[in-house]
């Protein structure tokens, strides 16, 4: 039997820990958002069912606690990427952008063949995973700007002011949700061999 070691232990651990922290950040963030639903209203039946109402204090307390976990786990992941050289698997090249479009067309059944893979991720994956890392960075920066708009006033101003930073923080959260939806669909589509690699690390190449 031939296998490939696809995801290292530290990569798998930080991935699953991030699942927990990101979920808690989104959940507590929505509790906070509900108190002033400036961009769109969460329909009452949904808010009631998910018990999102009148939980501002609870949302804030979790958000400002879990943020440390989210940040530290992200830094561990980033440090690993840098020091292991694994970042090369993610870094887009010139051709990546064009290939990403082709992969997407292929996935949508609009194109027969997919472009060849370079490394363990296809071009669309590379862009998506790089993008989500940048989004996490953006969430932290916009988060700080609305958390400390006086001591970090220069940052808040740089992002277009307090209201703008809040909107940016919110848009990034929506971006995470969209990413997760597509990510899960793709994982289902790719099947067990691929998913198992994120659990046990290996992928079977040949029986």
């Amino acid at each position: 039997m031939i296998i490939t070691e696809k995801h290292s232990r530290i990569l798998r651990y930080t991935h699953w820990i991030n699942v927990v922290f990101l979920s808690l950040m989104v959940w507590s963030g929505i509790l906070i958002y509900w108190a002033n639903d400036a961009y769109f209203k969460i329909p009452d039946p949904i808010a009631e069912k998910l018990s999102l109402q009148y939980k501002l204090a609870e949302g804030l307390s979790w958000h400002f606690f879990i943020m440390w976990g989210f940040l530290i786990n992200g830094l561990v992941y980033l440090a690993y990427q840098i020091f292991s050289g694994e970042w090369r698997e993610l870094a887009p090249r010139l051709g990546t952008f064009k290939d990403a479009v082709l992969v997407t067309l292929h996935d949508l059944h609009l194109r027969k063949s997919a472009p060849p893979m370079h490394g363990k991720f296809n071009a669309a994956q590379k862009l998506a995973y790089c993008g989500v890392i940048l989004m996490a960075f953006g969430s932290i920066v916009t988060g700080i700007a609305i958390y400390k708009p006086v001591t970090m006033g220069w940052l808040t101003a740089l992002l277009g002011g307090y209201e703008a930073a809040r909107l940016e923080h919110f848009i990034l959260m929506i971006g995470f949700i969209l990413f997760v939806i597509v990510h899960i669909l793709q994982v289902i589509k790719a099947g067990w061999n691929n998913f198992r690699a994120m659990i046990a690390g290996y992928e079977i190449e040949k029986k």
């Binding site: 039997m1 031939i2 296998i3 070691e5 050289g85 694994e86 659990i199 046990a200």
Partner: peptide, 21 residues
Amino acid sequence: MKLKKNNIDEKQLKKRLTGSI
């Protein structure tokens, strides 16, 4: 990092997966 490994015993893999689960 992609590392190819040949001649892997299937039992060994099962054990590894069980451990991870």
